[in-house]
Simulated assay, not measured.
Amino acid sequence: MDRDLWSGLAIFAQIVEAGSFARAARRLGLSASALSHAMRVLEAKLDIRLLDRTTRSLAPTSAGEALLERLRPAMASVEEVLGLLDTARDRPMGRVRVNAHRPAAVHIILPRLPALSRDCPDVSVELVVNDGLVDIVAERFDCGVRHAEALQGDMISIRISDPVSLVFVASPGYLAHHGCPDHAEDLGRHRCISYRHSTSGTVHRWEFERNGVTSQQAVPTSFVTNDVDVMRDAALAGLGIACLITEQATPHLLSGDLVKVLPGWAPALPPNHLYYPSRRQPTAAFRAFLHAMRDG
């Protein structure tokens, strides 16, 4: 088959799947103009229009839909064969694309990557940090890492952490000026640092756990952010009381830059799970990454 024709067909399928030239370009590591040129060449070779394009949207034409209906199974067969060849290598090689929320990226994935790098030097990892919810299939990730309640359906999931402990903290300067709360209800008289969920846009409702009883409470918020590191920095700056992951706060508690408040009131987050599509043939590189995450 004409090499340019096969390449153009693969690009055409990627563009339709991504829904835009820009997203397809990011997935393929090419420029949008290069993809546009490839589509013009493909349509010229086939002498038929495959995409209806406007400044705001694109969609396959009826001829493009008919082509995709036959093309997708063929491309899936090629990927399956490549996956079988991949298992025959003496050692894993290739790239693994991972989407994880920031705490998992920093405190779970990164500490386990040196062992993977040592044992499998030909495996590279692309770690995309995103605290919102992501469709890992549509965005072409090999796997995602989220808390159990945020997993996509029809996925294989593997627990890679214990429940994640939290701690309420504030700076010494803040406490010297505002006093230290003794009870969750005391927060009504304090300034609080809150988290806004990236996907839903809602501000997280503070949770408390005392003697096995969990409760929620609205607190007066003086600062809101959608980044957990900014929450920590805001607490260090004396903007108020924050609820942080214990691992994130520990260095600052040890240095005295932050002080634990409301001991015995902080809840825990569910364990982190690594999840991936059940219908996708794992590559040798992904299996090596999975092994590193399970054994960390």
Rank of each mutant, 00 (worst) to 15 (best):
T87W: 14
T87A: 15
A88Q: 15
A88T: 15
R89V: 11
R89Q: 15
R89G: 11
D90T: 11
D90Y: 11
R91Y: 09
P92L: 12
P92D: 07
M93Q: 15
M93V: 09
M93K: 14
G94C: 12
G94I: 06
V96D: 00
V96S: 00
R97L: 07
R97N: 13
R97Q: 07
R97A: 13
R97M: 00
V98A: 03
N99H: 05
N99E: 06
N99I: 14
N99K: 07
A100H: 03
A100P: 11
A100E: 04
H101M: 13
R102G: 03
A104M: 07
A104D: 04
I108W: 04
I109A: 02
L110W: 07
P111R: 12
P111T: 04
R112G: 04
R112D: 08
L113D: 08
L113A: 09
P114M: 08
A115W: 04
A115D: 07
A115G: 05
L116E: 01
L116K: 01
S117T: 09
S117C: 09
R118A: 15
R118H: 12
R118Q: 14
C120D: 00
C120M: 02
P121N: 05
D122I: 06
V123Y: 04
S124I: 00
S124L: 04
L127Q: 09
L127V: 10
L127W: 06
V129Y: 03
V129D: 05
V129Q: 10
N130Q: 12
N130S: 13
N130V: 06
D131F: 01
D131G: 03
L133G: 03
L133D: 03
V134A: 02
D135H: 12
D135I: 00
D135V: 07
D135C: 00
D135P: 10
I136K: 01
V137D: 11
V137F: 04
A138I: 06
E139P: 03
E139W: 10
R140N: 13
R140W: 11
F141K: 07
F141E: 00
F141G: 01
F141A: 00
F141Y: 15
D142I: 02
C143P: 06
C143R: 00
C143I: 03
G144K: 03
G144N: 09
G144L: 01
G144A: 11
V145L: 09
V145D: 02
R146T: 02
A148H: 13
E149C: 09
E149L: 12
E149W: 07
A150H: 13
A150P: 01
A150L: 14
A150C: 06
A150N: 12
L151Q: 08
D154W: 01
D154I: 03
D154P: 02
M155Q: 00
M155P: 01
R159G: 05
R159H: 02
I160Y: 02
